[in-house]
Design a protein around this nucleic acid. Sequence first.
RNA 1: GGCCCUAUCGUCUAGCCUGGUCUAGGACGCGUGCUUCUCAAGCACUAAACCCGGGUUCAAAUCCCGGUAGGGCCA
Length: 497
Amino acid sequence: MKKNTDIKQIRTRIAPSPTGPAHIGTARTALYNYLFAMQNNGKFILRIEDTDTQRSEQKWTDEVLSELKWVGIQWDEGPDIGGDYGPYKQSQRLDIYEKYLKQLLEEKKSYHCFCTEEELENKRQEQLSRGLAPKYDGTCTRLTAEEIEEKIKNNTPSVIRFKIENKKIKFKDLIRGDVEFDAALLGDIVIAKNLQTPLYHFAVVVDDFLMQISHVIRGEEHLSNTPRQILLQEALGFYQPIYAHLPLMLNTDKSKMSKRQGDVAISDYHKNGYLPEALINFMVLLGWNPGTEKEVFTLSQLIKEFTIDKVQKAGAVFNIQRLDFLNGLYIREKSIEKLTELCVPYLKEAGLLVIGQMPQNKLQEVVEVSRTRMKKLSDIVELADFFFQDKLIFDKDLLQWKEAGDNATKDSLEFSTKILSEIKNWELKELEEEMFSASEKFNLKKGYPEKNKGYLLWPLRVALSGKKMSPSPFEIANIYGKEKTLKFIENAIKMLS
RNA sequence: GGCCCUAUCGUCUAGCCUGGUCUAGGACGCGUGCUUCUCAAGCACUAAACCCGGGUUCAAAUCCCGGUAGGGCCA
């Protein structure tokens, strides 16, 4: 077998199957492959494994492409599709696999197998009942050339099996160190349904070779598939790439992240309003750390600082709270122009924002006063809905500060009205100063504790927001303007009458 | 069932290779306090872990052996 010592360039790849929504695990594997390739001036390749035509759909291929782009992971090669790189697709390479399939058949390294599903199942059960590991018993290897020819002529259904040598397979994994498997336990594997329909193990091996992949960085679920692929490489005379098996992303119960629990599609996170930079930062930390206490990274910093030898061996639980924290961090760091632009679609979708209804600068102020409370972009809807409404609906008891009672609350709101209607400079600072001093006067007049601003400010804030929690009344009033502010207070007073 | 992988706070992890500086560090989350009209944000502080059992050694989270548990793959 050739060694890959003559590798001139680091080349990595991600090879998703388009049989469903692009998985978050694909994004993380892609990220690690991308980082590793980029920091070594290598290439990162995207290959769509769509040989299973039954389950593959173009829309899922399109989704992988668009979501990877959204995350910010760009692949380096592929067929030209109008100035851009398309991905490599296995469905367009069937003649290539056929050639190698024929080669193995000619060299007697693989053979046609005519056993039926039923026969195989019976043998399997029988082996199991004798306490043996089920594996193919090699019935069809004993067929004569004439028998094979006749069965093929008669169109007897068949598959192509690859002869597994009985030997120990050792390989070095960049993350796990030396790994050894006993191939004798494997049994001859099916590598193709027919010459035009190769199966996963075969197509991967051929493509990784032809695409000159230097490092196969993939999920741990593939670790025990590796010996089969190594044997196939040996049979075909290919070099052996360097392997690195990543720890799995786990559900809270430590099982492999699946469709059963929570969101697993990249698009789910995209739609819910996670920022790609937060998702990247979060994903890279699931199974890797820089060895320092630094935890916030941009993609370009990661390209410099990522080190494959610091990748963990054990699986990592996907902890959404940490993602939320990171996302909040990035939301707070965004420029207000950009953040507003990102929030607009959510506001429109919720039916709150009608185009032209609110000037851009106002919209930015709304987003600005809401951002510290946002974990996800979609949060803007609940956080800022009142800015877009003409009338607020809420329980009037919410207006009360402590046990003030309706009358005292009404007095408070009327006092606010009086102060606010006299304000000439409707600006945040002015509003704050006027209302703070008004609060002291009000408390003095009513015999409340002087420093407790709640008596005046709580009812005001609720009148303006209709909520238990919100930005300060000054921030809201400032955005509303005098007229709308006074109108909302008046509405609240009416509720109390 | 067979094979393989893994094992430090609830979670992500540092430390393990090159035993002592580990009364085990950081972050998220939790709790408390400060700030404060509310909720956030910010700041400060607290609680929280070496899977178990042997062995080696003056000394083990760190090395060795054996269990156990979890996970993955194949069927």
